[in-house]
């Protein structure tokens, strides 16, 4: 059976799915709604290019995904975003500025995570989530593409227009912040 498009049923058939897909990647409800609406309207302009090789839902999701990446990219265009700057300030004193050695206070200490088995329990997910929410949007986009979409490093760099060395810096800083946040908030 070849796939066909039926715009009269798009919302009923796919809107909730597309919205949940978006919200897993973008936390802003209003923006997520707009992206779904926008996806339907752009799709109407592209119906001629639908060849029926994928399902209607897969095709719509691909259009939506491009719009989500566009949003991510907007956030990566200014590497000196205020939220990135704020997060970087938080870790300004992590290392000695002369030789790069851990400063005493922010250095890793033993805490509850050392006895915790994440594969057995999800008890501390809420603390992790709280710490993730504090990360700059761009850093979060990188995590989302890596863990939710399981994209490879070069794909993420190409789509977000990041250099590879920038990518490592982002991963490094994001993990430094997360670890510090967990150490501070673990009960």
């Amino acid at each position: 059976m070849s796939n066909e498009l039926d715009p009269h049923h798009w919302v009923k058939a796919h809107a909730d799915y597309l919205y949940a897909y978006t919200r897993a990647r973008i936390s802003d409800e209003e923006l997520a709604r707009d992206l779904v609406q926008d996806t339907f309207l752009s799709a109407l302009e592209k119906v001629g290019s639908f060849e029926g090789r994928s399902s209607e839902r897969t095709w719509l999701t691909a259009i939506l995904r491009n719009k989500i990446i566009d949003q991510y990219r907007k956030k990566s265009s200014g590497l000196l975003n205020a939220d990135v700057q704020r997060a970087e300030e938080e870790q300004a004193d992590f290392f000695n500025s002369d030789d790069g050695h851990w400063n005493n206070e922010p250095a890793p200490k033993h805490f509850g995570i050392d006895e915790y088995d994440p594969l057995q329990s999800k008890e501390f997910d809420h603390i992790l989530m709280k710490c993730l929410k504090k990360l700059p949007a761009l850093w979060m986009s990188v995590f989302t593409m890596k863990h939710l979409d399981e994209e490879q490093t070069d794909t993420i760099c190409a789509e977000l227009k990041l250099t590879v060395s920038n990518y490592w810096v982002i991963i490094h800083r994001a993990k430094l912040n997360l670890r510090a946040c967990l150490q501070k908030n673990w009960i």
Partner: peptide, 30 residues
Amino acid sequence: ACRLYQAQTTKIGQMIKNLFNESPGVNITL
């Protein structure tokens, strides 16, 4: 300190992976 960092960040990586792989909330609807 860095050996401890390595153990902890590896665990944090697993936690992030688990969190993202939970099925997205079915209650997220319009």
